[in-house]
Design a protein around this nucleic acid. Structure first.
Lengths: 166, 166
DNA sequence: ATCGATGCAAAAACTTTGCATCGGT
DNA sequence: ACCGATGCAAAGTTTTTGCATCGAT
């Protein structure tokens, strides 16, 4: 059987749940002999406002326009730690840029992506859990994570294609 | 003609399947008003020897060391066409580099990847087809493709971790 | 007072593009 | 002959790194 880690439930609607995630990150950093700085706190804060997939650059712009100044380098360095700490995960929608998403306290999701418009729809991923576990077992792998990305054409894009064809 | 070499990895049952792939590409190019050049033929040839995931740079090195000279730019330009033509697909294992794999004439596979060693194991993907179709239907998407990547720790890497810990 | 963290700019890694020339059709 | 394709090098993107200084513990 594959190990599952449980984290306190994080609810985007409830600001009080921010503290636990922050503590988790703090403990993680402390355990590694790393420091909890105000920059890291601000980045985590901004990350936790994200309900959808986001990019490093986005984070940087948002933080700058809300007068919290952080360098690009620190953003990248901190995102790495947040991934290791399993607060966020890399989504891999596009080979040319890393996309991130909060994963702590939320059930795993797959991503349905429109190849024409870039629109992304999330969907629950429970159903493949059994398959994933079996594949891992068959090859003696210890499960770390999994991602399902479906590429398609959204109804809107299909309609637009039809309009343009006529 | 470049497409008459034997490619044990790809042909499996029928070496004659190579010609059809070449024709498919040719027709694809023709239909777009593009040209079937000897560079493109060589690249397709080399691509079809690949049984596993590969990178653009790898292709370039292999072609150079086997006296076929192609530029990096042409490799990238041709890979794009091969993706569009659905002879190969992008695999998205790593956000820092595009990985490709031949997909024409093979059943779709998922990828089990060791996060420590980078080892990759493929597995058949039929089982999630129904789920994928259902998700597409539910959102009115027209299916284009899908990929499942499982990340884990391979038995070898796990053993090595234990060795290092002691 | 330690180290690790930060910011900046430079570098790195991968991919794309401009342009003169070549070559399929 | 036309117009897309090629090679080269330069440019573009995203991410990483070196280094002097700052700041958490």
């Amino acid at each position: 059987m594959v190990t599952t880690h449980s984290h306190p439930q994080y609810d985007g609607d409830d600001p009080l749940m921010l503290a636990p995630v922050c503590s988790i990150f703090r403990r993680f950093l402390h355990d590694q002999g790393l420091k909890f700085t105000s920059e890291r706190a601000h980045i985590l804060d901004t990350v936790l406002t994200k309900t959808e997939v986001f990019e490093a650059e986005q984070l940087l712009n948002e933080m700058r326009s809300s007068d919290q100044k952080v360098s690009k380098a620190t953003i990248y360095r901190t995102l790495k730690h947040l991934v290791e700490c399993q607060i966020i995960e890399e989504v891999l929608l596009d080979p040319r840029q890393t996309h991130y998403q909060t994963c702590i306290g939320r059930p795993p999701t797959g991503h349905l992506m429109c190849v024409e418009s870039g629109k992304i729809v999330e969907f629950p991923l429970e159903e493949i859990r059994e398959l994933v576990n079996r594949i891992c077992d068959e090859h003696g792998f210890q499960h770390v994570g999994h991602r399902l990305v479906i590429q398609g054409i959204s109804p809107e894009a299909a309609q637009q294609d039809r309009d343009e064809a006529s």
